[in-house]
Design a binder for these strands. Structure first.
Lengths: 140, 140
DNA sequence: CAGCATCCATCGAGATACTG
DNA sequence: CAGTATCTCGATGGATGCTG
């Protein structure tokens, strides 16, 4: 990796661009429900507001609404009035948004590897235990 | 990708494990300064507290301290009393921590791609503009 | 040197209720 | 249906000062 660009300056000067880029990327996935929203749209392709809210159990209208607004600004999703019913808004990923799939995959891989390393247990049993817990850090 | 595991259930049931894993991974990088700390240790290999604080301009003792504690718990870094001076603590990445390099690279790639797409401008000039701005969302 | 203690400001998110 | 409006709460991070 070429984080390293010299020897005299501080890290955040050397790696300025890398650092900014990383924060940009993390920003795309910021928000507790964002990865799940993206995953939902990766799987279902097109969903409208209520459908999304139903898919993603636990999310509030407010949070869903603002998350979608955010993702739209970032050009990750598209918002379109349904050609069918009036007053229905359809959401789907843009091409750019679909590019996040690889990133989500790698994040998933890292997360799995990390959990195995930390616990020794495998993910399946651990995930379920976690799910029963709820309410701590890892809500989903 | 095999997010998809059926058709009847909600996304967060279907993708439960994936979703948890992604949140685990994002958790590793959580905290405003965490990626930078990891990058600093990727580049410098071994650093003690004050050296880190100097490298990462702007971070406070409190935040650095708690970030390091967190990373240590997650087995991303190791904390060792310096063999040289007394009272000096050395920090370095574990093997596991070093594995995050690939993830950081991909995040960086995604961030760069995203910024190019959003702005049309290239990252270099944009990064600098951002840096001069400060204080908004993308601090570094 | 390597932190910890305190206080404070901000912000994301949950709960609840309401609307064009 | 697709949101908006409030209010509250907890976690994060900044500022400052102190210590073994």
């Amino acid at each position: 990796m070429e984080f390293y660009m010299g020897n005299k300056d501080q890290i955040h000067s050397q790696c300025r661009q890398t650092s900014i880029a990383i924060n940009d990327a993390l920003d795309l996935l910021a928000g507790k429900w964002t990865p799940l929203i993206i995953m939902a749209l990766l799987v279902r392709k097109v969903l409208c507001f209520t459908a999304l809210k139903t898919e993603i159990e636990g999310i509030s209208s407010k949070v869903l609404s603002s998350s979608l607004k955010r993702l739209e600004q970032q050009l990750i999703i598209e918002r379109n009035a349904s050609s069918g019913q009036l007053g229905k808004i359809e959401y789907k990923l843009t091409d750019h948004g679909r590019n996040l799939e690889k990133l989500l995959e790698q994040l998933s891989d890292v997360g799995i590897a990390h959990r195995i390393m930390l616990t020794g247990r495998n993910v399946q049993e651990r995930a379920i235990a976690e799910f029963e817990n709820f309410g701590t850090k890892h809500i989903l």
